[in-house]
């Protein structure tokens, strides 16, 4: 199925620095971001539905649902960059995978698993990666755009870290142990996902940062640092054996 965001993206095309030798690489990068961001809307919609079914308060459910709108906007914002680079905001859409309902767990435990995976893991890593890219990027319309996206990602990650303690408080010992097993699985999934998007052969020239082109190797280093120095200690502070889960991820890789 094609994802066609041309009508939304074209009015959003930013003014970019002229770096024609990097345009093709930048188009590929921003097209990938467009596809991924747009697909994430489904994730937040499904998570909001799951939270609603589990009986979480309506304000939290609606907040989560609003993240889907933000992800769709991010898709268009990224598509605008593709258009500004001389490309077209059309690409093969990601195949929609079923959202896990975790029928083996209580409704709240199921929500917590998904909140950990989506917000506390994936979106927290995104905050690091985008934050680093933004820190290097020179001032301009693209940096402003990245700042807007980054701000939303901060909100998405923050949501998980806010919700998780309350959900966790309702879990008994057995459920916590199950959660730690799930966390190992989620870590393995996160690692596979991130490494697949952070190519070791991506070594753009220094001026590439002006178009959002980053070193894949550096980004991988930052990914691992974020997991081991931020996410794991934060989960540990909640009483989750996250260090052990990070070690055990290897069994699920």
């Amino acid at each position: 199925m094609l994802l066609d965001l041309r009508s939304e993206a074209r009015p959003l095309a930013p003014v970019l620095p002229r770096l024609p030798h990097l345009a093709a690489s930048a188009r590929a990068t921003w097209t990938g971001r467009m596809v991924n961001e747009h697909a994430s809307a489904r994730v937040f919609e499904a998570l909001a539905d799951q939270m609603d079914l589990a009986g979480l308060e309506a304000a939290l459910v609606e907040q989560c649902r609003s993240f889907a709108d933000e992800e769709r906007l991010h898709g268009a914002l990224c598509g605008g960059v593709v258009e500004a680079l001389g490309g077209s905001a059309v690409a093969q859409a990601l195949v929609a995978k079923p959202f896990p309902c975790h029928d083996d767990a209580t409704p709240m435990e199921g929500v917590l698993r998904n909140v950990l995976s989506v917000s506390c893991l994936s979106e927290t890593v995104a905050v690091s990666l985008i934050g680093a890219e933004r820190a290097e990027m020179p001032a301009g319309e693209l940096r402003d755009r990245l700042t807007r996206i980054w701000a939303d990602e901060i909100g998405h990650a923050r949501f998980g870290w806010k919700v998780a303690p309350g959900l966790l408080a309702g879990l008994g010992l057995v459920a916590r142990r199950r959660l730690e097993t799930y966390l190992a699985v989620a870590f393995a999934h996160l690692e596979r996902h991130e490494l697949s998007h952070l190519s070791l052969v991506a070594r753009p020239p220094p001026e590439g940062i002006a178009l959002g082109l980053c070193s894949g190797a550096d980004a991988r280093t930052l990914f691992y640092a974020t997991v081991t120095e931020v996410i794991v200690p934060s989960l540990e502070s909640l009483g989750i054996a996250a260090s052990e889960a990070w070690r055990r991820r290897l069994a699920w890789s």
Partner: peptide, 9 residues
């Protein structure tokens, strides 16, 4: 980047 995620988490 790390600092931003640490602040959030």
């Amino acid at each position: 980047g790390l600092r931003a995620s640490a602040k959030v988490a």
